[in-house]
Design a protein around this nucleic acid. Structure first.
Lengths: 109, 109
DNA sequence: GACTTATATAAGCAATTGATTATATTATAA
DNA sequence: TTATAATATAATCAATTGCTTATATAAGTC
C-alpha cells in the first residue's frame, strides 16, 4: 500500500476543481488540449500546466497525433483515485455541447 | 451525487499529510487533541486548527469530556472519503507507542 | 521558405495555505 | 481564588498554488 505522504501528494492533484473536471471529462473519452480548453473556458497554458502535473503523477497519458496531443486516463495504478472518481458526477453533457460546436467550427480537425 | 466543486473542496482536506494522518489515527479510536499532538510531534494550535477544518467539513465530530475534547471520525455522509481511507495504511503502531508513553507520563489520563 | 494552428514552457503575481507564536477560554485541582 | 492543564482563537509569515501574459516549440499548410 502506498505511503501516506505519497497519497496526500496525489490527492492534491484531485483537490482542484479544474483538474478534477479534466479527469472527469477524460472518463468519457480521450481529448486533445484544445477540446479541454473549450469545455473549461479557460486559457490553453492553464490547461497545459494542469495536464503536465497529472501526467507527471501518472494519472493521465498523452499521445501526439499530428498537431494534436490527446490525453487519456491511466488510473490503473492508483485505485484510490479510481475510487474517488466513482463518486464524481458525469460531465458527459459538457462534452456533448463541445461536439455541437465542432461540427460548425471545425475545431480540432 | 455531490457537485464536483464540493468534492474538490472536501478532497483539499485530505490532501494534506497532517490531516490525512489525523483521520488515519482516528480510524483506530477516538483521540483527544493532546494525544494527536504527541503522535504527530507538532504544536497544539496546529492540530487544533486542522481539527477545526475537519470538523467544519463534517469529517470528524467532537465530544468534550472534562478538560479533554475527544475527536472521532464521522465519514458516513462522505463515501468517497471513506473510499480513499480504505487505501491509507494503518497508523496503529504510532498509537501503540503513544500508549506506552501514557503509562509512564499519565498523559491524558 | 513563410504562415497558421496546437501545444509547451517561463516569468510574474495575487490568493491561499500550513505553520508558528502569543493570547484567550474552559475545566480541574489545590 | 489561584494555579495548572487542555484546548481554541488570533495574528503573522514564508511557502505554495492557480492563473495570466508572453514566448518558444512543433506540426501542418500554402
Amino acid at each position: 500500500m502506498e505511503d501516506i505522504t505519497k497519497i496526500a501528494e496525489t490527492l492534491k492533484l484531485l483537490a482542484d476543481r479544474t483538474r478534477l473536471t479534466i479527469l472527469t471529462l477524460l472518463r468519457e473519452r480521450e481529448l486533445c488540449v484544445c477540446e479541454i480548453v473549450e469545455v473549461l473556458e479557460t486559457t490553453q497554458p492553464n490547461i497545459s500546466q494542469h495536464l503536465r502535473k497529472l501526467k507527471d503523477a501518472g494519472l493521465v497519458s498523452e499521445a501526439r497525433r499530428g498537431q494534436w496531443v490527446y490525453y487519456s486516463l491511466s488510473l490503473a495504478k492508483v485505485p484510490y483515485v479510481q475510487a474517488v472518481m466513482d463518486y464524481v458526477p458525469s460531465a458527459k453533457e459538457q462534452l456533448d455541447s463541445l461536439n455541437l460546436d465542432c461540427t460548425t467550427d471545425d475545431c480540432c480537425e
